[in-house]
């Protein structure tokens, strides 16, 4: 799994923000995780706690914001909630569903001091 890479990338974003926005401690990290993204949240929490040792984020609490999967059917144009990449359209049964939300892996906000 690539959770270690993701944790390193998160730390890099936070450290760049620390310079740009003048903070020395991160108290909370709010991270958006889409239902369809390939993030394993507990694995990421573990990796994050490992990479932030002795950094501005060493005391940071990691809060996940879950984002629902949403799809748009290419055949009948209806919108629906989706839980997997192979859900069928509940209206017409087609698998040709375009994902419009649920792929997110992004840092939304930090609480800092």
């Amino acid at each position: 799994m690539h959770e270690m890479t993701l944790a390193e990338q998160m730390l890099q974003i936070i450290e760049e923000a620390a310079i740009a926005q003048n903070f020395t401690q991160v108290k909370t990290v709010w991270m958006e995780v889409g239902r369809l993204s390939c993030v394993e949240k507990e694995a990421l929490r573990f990796c994050f706690s490992a990479v932030v040792e002795e950094t501005v984020a060493r005391r940071a609490k990691l809060e996940f914001i879950d984002i629902k999967g949403r799809g748009l059917c290419a055949q009948c144009e209806c919108e629906m909630d989706i839980n997997t990449l192979y859900d069928a359209c509940p209206a017409c049964g087609s698998y040709a569903i375009q994902i419009i939300a649920g792929n997110e892996m992004r840092i939304r906000e930090l609480e800092v001091e």
Binding site: L6, M10, E104, M105, R106, I107, E109, L110
Partner: peptide, 8 residues
């Protein structure tokens, strides 16, 4: 609070 809005 600091807004980040950045994809990992």
């Amino acid at each position: 609070r600091v807004r980040i809005e950045q994809a990992i």
